[in-house]
Simulated scan of single mutants.
Amino acid sequence: MSSPEHKQKIWDLIKHIKTGMLTTHHGNELRARPMVLVQDEYDGTLWFYTDLKSEKVFEVERDHDVCLSFADPDNQVYVSLTGVGKPTRNKELINKYWNSFVAAWFPEGKDSANVGMLEVKILKGEHWDSSSSAMVKSVKTMTAKIKGEQPDLGEHEKFGTKKGS
């Protein structure tokens, strides 16, 4: 697992992006769909509202391994997180994060039987932060090419452990 400082770094990278692509196993295929973060801080677990009768919930129940990817192309920030997903009907969490945006997706209200949360415990990940300007990147790329080196276009870091470690 990552340190509290690293968790804060990951949160700082994804909290403004808000929407990540959740990838699940759909039989022998992979399937991704957008999911919106609802929490105000990150401790190693990410939370999303979900319809408990949705296909993604059935997919996560069959195979708990999921991947979340976040991208902010304007600022050249990319984050890929691998973890274990689990749907839950935790009323405390549903009440804690409920807001008008979520209510629009669940017109029957937060007490509807299909309203739930998807918990994703992050095990490992990778992030790229190349937020320098296009001009700076272009100069770095040309300089590296002339020197026969690979350009340094920002920060890239892997973190985490294998499942069960």
Rank of each mutant, 00 (worst) to 15 (best):
Y97G: 04
E108I: 01
A113L: 04
P107W: 03
V66M: 08
I17K: 05
L68A: 11
G125Y: 07
K96G: 02
P151K: 04
E29L: 12
G109Y: 07
E59M: 04
S138P: 04
V115Y: 00
K56W: 04
H64W: 09
A71G: 14
H25Y: 11
N95K: 11
N114Q: 11
T23G: 10
T82I: 09
D74I: 09
V115C: 00
D63R: 13
K18P: 03
I94D: 00
I146L: 15
E149K: 15
K110E: 12
H64T: 12
G154V: 00
I94V: 14
L52R: 10
S100M: 09
N99L: 10
P87K: 00
L22Y: 01
K56H: 12
P34R: 06
S131C: 11
A144G: 11
A32M: 05
D129S: 12
A71W: 00
E155F: 06
M21R: 07
S132F: 08
V120E: 03
T23S: 15
K137D: 01
M35Y: 03
D74Q: 14
H127V: 03
L81Q: 02
K124N: 15
P34T: 05
K91F: 05
T143H: 10
W128P: 06
M142T: 13
L22I: 07
P151S: 10
V136M: 14
P151A: 07
D65N: 14
E29N: 13
F48W: 08
N28Q: 11
V102I: 15
K140F: 12
F58K: 15
L153V: 07
E155W: 04
Y78D: 09
T143W: 12
Y49N: 03
S69Y: 09
V120N: 01
A113Q: 09
L118Q: 00
E55P: 01
E55W: 02
L68F: 12
V60M: 02
S131Y: 13
D43M: 03
K137I: 03
S54M: 08
G85M: 01
Y78H: 14
L46D: 06
K91C: 02
K124D: 09
E29T: 08
A113V: 05
D152A: 13
T45F: 03
D72C: 11
N99E: 09
V84Y: 02
V120L: 06
M117R: 06
M135S: 12
S100H: 07
E41L: 01
K18Y: 05
H127R: 08
E157A: 14
E108F: 02
F58Q: 15
E119P: 00
S133H: 12
L118A: 01
T141I: 15
K137V: 04
D40Y: 05
K18C: 07
R89W: 07
A32C: 08
H156T: 09
T143Q: 14
F70D: 05
N28W: 01
N95D: 15
C67F: 06
P151D: 04
K86N: 10
L52G: 02
D65C: 10
P34D: 03
T45E: 13
A71M: 10
G148N: 11
K140T: 12
T141V: 13
K91L: 06
A32K: 01
G148T: 10
Y42P: 02
H156E: 06
T143M: 14
V84G: 04
P151H: 04
Y78I: 06
T24V: 15
N90D: 15
Q39P: 02
A104N: 09
